[in-house]
């Protein structure tokens, strides 16, 4: 089999023109998902069932179903309901981009809230007792003791989720979005050269993953500065 280098060189700039869309998907759903995760976390940490139960159900549903199915349900399924088409969400759900953001946000929010919860529960109980003994209120303990330590503990699993989210953005191409993956699929359809195109695309994703890893590595070091000798 021959490997067409010139085809790769030709198609690289085309695929890279989708980089903006890939990043928009990653950053928008990443930020919104983190916010959602935080809300879900607070709901679960309250000891009131009417907050914690809905959060648990939400997390179960979104972790328990394939993200591709979630994207299809939101993109193909929701517009069938009149109520959705007349709601204030329609301007977002009418667009494939909006649907992709909603699906990715809900999905990553469910996963990240579990990461945050694990990190919160991993904070040494003795430190919280010390805070209580000093007279700090529940909120003060959460803000000054739990949060900074939980952030540090949550970084490695969270970076894992961001990398996973980067790759999930490629699924948006299934609902007519021309991110890097969408463009690559179009080129493959025209050239019948899946190897060259998809392998170079894979390498682009790997390069981004490398930078995400590095970035989180620096962040982790910064947050761990107190344990260095």
């Amino acid at each position: 089999m021959s490997f067409d280098i010139s085809l790769i060189l030709d198609s690289l700039p085309k695929m890279l023109s989708g980089i903006g869309l890939t990043f928009q998907l990653l950053i928008l759903s990443g930020v919104l998902g983190l916010f959602l995760a935080f809300v879900l976390l607070l709901m679960r940490l309250t000891e009131k069932w009417y907050f914690s139960l809905p959060a648990q159900v939400f997390i179960y549903v979104f972790r328990g179903t394939p993200i591709l199915v979630q994207i299809f349900i939101i993109y193909y399924g929701l517009p069938q309901f009149e109520a959705i088409r007349e709601s204030i969400f329609w301007p977002i759900l009418r667009e494939p981009f909006g649907c992709a953001i909603v699906a990715l946000t809900l999905n990553t929010g469910a996963y990240v809230s579990e990461i945050l919860r694990g990190a919160v529960l991993a904070v040494d109980r003795g430190l919280l007792e010390a805070g209580s003994a000093l007279g700090l209120s529940r909120n003060q303990r959460f803000i000054y003791i739990t949060s900074p330590l939980a952030i540090r503990l949550g970084i490695p699993p969270y970076s894992n989720d961001v990398i996973s989210l980067l790759k999930s953005t490629a699924l948006a191409s299934t609902i007519t979005i021309f991110d890097m993956m969408g463009i690559a699929r179009t080129i493959v359809a025209e050239t019948y050269a899946p190897y060259e195109i998809f392998i170079s695309l894979a390498i682009i994703y790997m390069i981004f993953t490398f930078f995400i890893q590095k970035g989180f590595g620096y962040f982790e070091n910064f947050m761990s500065r107190h344990v260095k000798k």
Binding site: L127, E129, A130, A133, L134, G135, V227
Partner: peptide, 16 residues
């Protein structure tokens, strides 16, 4: 709690 101080076996200083 404001009037009662406590010292623990494992110190429990805030590490950060």
């Amino acid at each position: 709690r404001r009037e009662v101080g406590m010292v623990f076996q494992s110190f429990n200083l805030f590490p950060h």
